[in-house]
């Protein structure tokens, strides 16, 4: 009875177990505990949430492995951690300490402006950001086992998350109505691998799990993304930069499960205290935007 580890099926499989759930950014073991108790299906362990990375500036890198390990020791749910785009040695380190998922993330300062990590080379699965279907399928082509739309991290402004989810899901809808002979030209225009374009058409959905990220701050934001058609939600700064993180975290979890039930959404939206202050993306200078990192 031979056991095979690190297959694409088991990498993709963990993301399938996360569906319908909320993945929360945490910077301490105490945060991780609060997230788990609120019902998070996984946590993202990092030193600074995106809002602080924005505020403090400088180069943002992989977090201290000791911090990640302490968070892994605290919770039983999966623990994810971020490496820089193209920084395959940070990824090797995260794999060596046993994180459950690596986010090759535009929130950190890119290490390579041309190439992403060849993710097929790893046993640990990767999630990557995208703004459209072409970018998503390029990442899957490199071995990403899960995709998240980028949004604009650390802003608390959901507008970019909506833009990117609408782009991806709209392109998939268009694809499903195309004739097979049109797929090569569409693959060319998307800049995406033909085989994955074909597979996406056949499945009528992204070939891997697709979450939303970048700007979700309220239960209504989370339910909005779910109704648009994503499989689950990442919440970064939105929880621990708010007035009452435990309460808000639990409310967002409930909103993702009951995303189609407006009376439950109304109930869970009550008395959450202050939401994160946020920054409007429409008046933000281009150079401050993270979503443009990677291609």
């Amino acid at each position: 009875m031979e056991q095979q580890t690190g297959t694409f099926t088991v990498k993709k499989g963990l993301a399938q177990m996360l569906k319908g759930g909320v993945i929360m950014d945490v910077v301490t073991p105490e945060h991780a505990k609060i997230a788990e108790e609120a019902g998070a299906c996984a946590v993202m362990a990092l030193e600074r949430v995106p809002a602080d990375i924005r505020a403090e500036g400088g180069v943002a890198r992989m977090s201290d492995p000791d911090l990640i390990l302490r968070i892994m020791d605290t919770v039983t749910i999966p623990v994810m951690a971020k490496c820089r785009i193209g920084h395959f040695v940070e990824a090797q380190i995260l794999e060596a300490i046993g994180v459950d998922y690596i986010d090759e993330s535009e929130v950190l300062t890119p290490a390579d402006e041309e190439n992403h990590i060849l993710k097929h080379n790893f046993k640990v699965p990767f999630v990557c950001g995208c703004r459209n279907l072409g970018e998503a399928l390029r990442r899957v082509g490199e071995g990403a086992a899960m995709i998240r739309t980028k949004g604009e991290a650390g802003t608390g402004d959901v507008v970019e998350a909506v833009r990117h989810a609408r782009a991806v899901l709209g392109e998939i809808r268009r694809l499903t109505t195309m004739a097979d002979e049109e797929l090569m030209a569409y693959a060319k225009s998307l800049g995406a691998p033909y085989e994955l374009v074909k597979e996406t058409k056949e499945l009528g959905r992204m070939p891997v799990v697709n979450f939303a990220a970048g700007g979700v701050a309220t239960p209504a934001d989370a339910a909005l993304m779910m109704q648009l058609g994503v499989d689950g939600v990442f919440v970064g700064s939105g929880i621990f930069k708010s007035g009452d993180p435990a309460r808000r975290a639990a409310a967002i979890v409930k909103a993702v499960t009951h995303y189609n039930d407006a009376s439950i959404l109304a109930e869970v939206s009550k008395n959450l205290g202050e939401a994160m202050v946020g920054r409007s993306v429409s008046v933000m200078p281009e150079v401050e935007k993270m979503a443009g990192r990677g291609w």
């Binding site: 009875m1 031979e2 095979q4 088991v10």
Partner: peptide
């Protein structure tokens, strides 16, 4: 017993 085989890198497929 939860997570009895270890973490995600230990997730596997097998014929039974």
């Amino acid at each position: 017993v939860r997570n009895a085989f270890g973490r995600q890198v230990d997730s596997f497929e097998a014929d039974l």
